[in-house]
Amino acid sequence: MTLVIDKLVVPLAHFDLEVTATMSARVTAIFGPSGAGKTSLLDAIAGLRALKSGRIAFDDVVLSDLPARARRIGYVPQETALFPHLSVARNIRYGGRHNEQHVVEVLEIGHLLDRGVTALSGGEQKRVALARALLAAPRLLLLDEPLAGLDHPLRDRVMALLQRVRDDVNVPMLYVTHDEEELAMIADEVVRLEHGHMAA
């Protein structure tokens, strides 16, 4: 399973994001300071941001030729974007019910299924958003700062769950972070971004 980003150019507000990379690890971290273009890179891979030029391919599938709905990219944005009018169960089943029982068990959200999403804690929202992405049977999972906004004990718990997902659910991940400690805990390889360019 290999993600190839070839001469990608994405126009941003103050500069162009320019990336060429090949990623084939279970978890690849996109690491860099705030404003480096990390989220924009995820948006481009998910099909939510227009490219100026370049090509994104996953194995034999040229993702950049497909609309967002046909890419099968699971995306967990930083603010989770859970659908506020739907219950937890309807949120996680929105894109499908692939491997539902296993995912619900791994993420420990079985007791939340009938609840509304607006009353969930930060950590619960992250787990539900992760489950929603996984149940759609993605070929690749994008995680944008999944531990942001969580206090310390909760960060450890969510990180442990992410490590379980990495080990038990066979989906490669791109993991955006600006935290060195998180890198060490979950990433197999690292792509460093600064001001829209790959750093050495």
């Binding site: 099909g47 967002a68 709905r69 974007a81 894109g95 759609a136």
Partner: peptide, 15 residues
């Protein structure tokens, strides 16, 4: 309506 909800729905395969 926050367009991010619509974008995420599209990534989940919704037309």
């Amino acid at each position: 309506v926050n367009p991010h909800y619509e974008q995420i729905a599209r990534t989940l395969g919704a037309h």
